[in-house]
Amino acid sequence: MSEKKIKNIFVDGAITPDFIARSISNHSSKTDIGGHSIFMGQVRKDEIDGKLVAAIEYTAFEELALTKMHEIREAVFSKYPLSCMHVHHSLGTIKAGEICLFVFTSSKHRKPAIEACNELVEKIKSELPIWGKEIFADASHQWKENS
């Protein structure tokens, strides 16, 4: 594995609009970037068996998730000519309507940024040991299945 430091992707609580705006604005001075791709995962107020999802409580096997994310990060940087890659995932209880995942990729041209962002989201959802428990409006709960 690379000697690069493993980055912490986890954020306590929801990812705020201010955090997202700051992240985007920090890139305005990087004039060699021509394309950005952003994915924001938002908690949905789904109706399941007649009950509404009020929130999702995210937990993770953090050490393993961070190691795996580092491997994914290195593989994606090897595959695409990216300038920047940022991944942030919430832990804790995130209410319906709030952002729980923020993936932001940048490159000289749009296509690598878009493809890398899509690949990152798919790998995060399928390979990281992160779990979500759906909390319903009536305070009952169930474990969420990724789709």
Rank of each mutant, 00 (worst) to 15 (best):
A116L: 05
K51N: 09
H86V: 15
S37L: 03
K133R: 11
S23E: 15
S2M: 02
G132T: 04
S2G: 02
K5E: 15
R110N: 10
G97S: 10
S106R: 00
L91W: 04
K108R: 08
E57D: 15
L64A: 15
K133T: 15
F102N: 05
E119A: 09
I94C: 07
E74W: 00
S78N: 13
A75E: 11
E3F: 12
S23I: 08
F104W: 12
S126V: 01
F102D: 05
C100P: 03
V43N: 04
I24W: 08
I114S: 05
I99M: 13
D138V: 02
W143E: 07
K7C: 11
G41Q: 05
I135A: 07
A60R: 07
N26E: 14
K133P: 03
I56L: 12
D46H: 06
L101F: 09
H86R: 10
K125D: 03
G34L: 01
H141M: 05
I99G: 04
G13K: 02
G35R: 01
Q42W: 08
E127W: 04
K111W: 00
I94Y: 02
E115M: 05
A137T: 11
L82R: 05
I38K: 03
V103A: 09
K95N: 12
T31D: 07
E115L: 12
A137M: 06
G92Y: 01
I38S: 08
G50N: 05
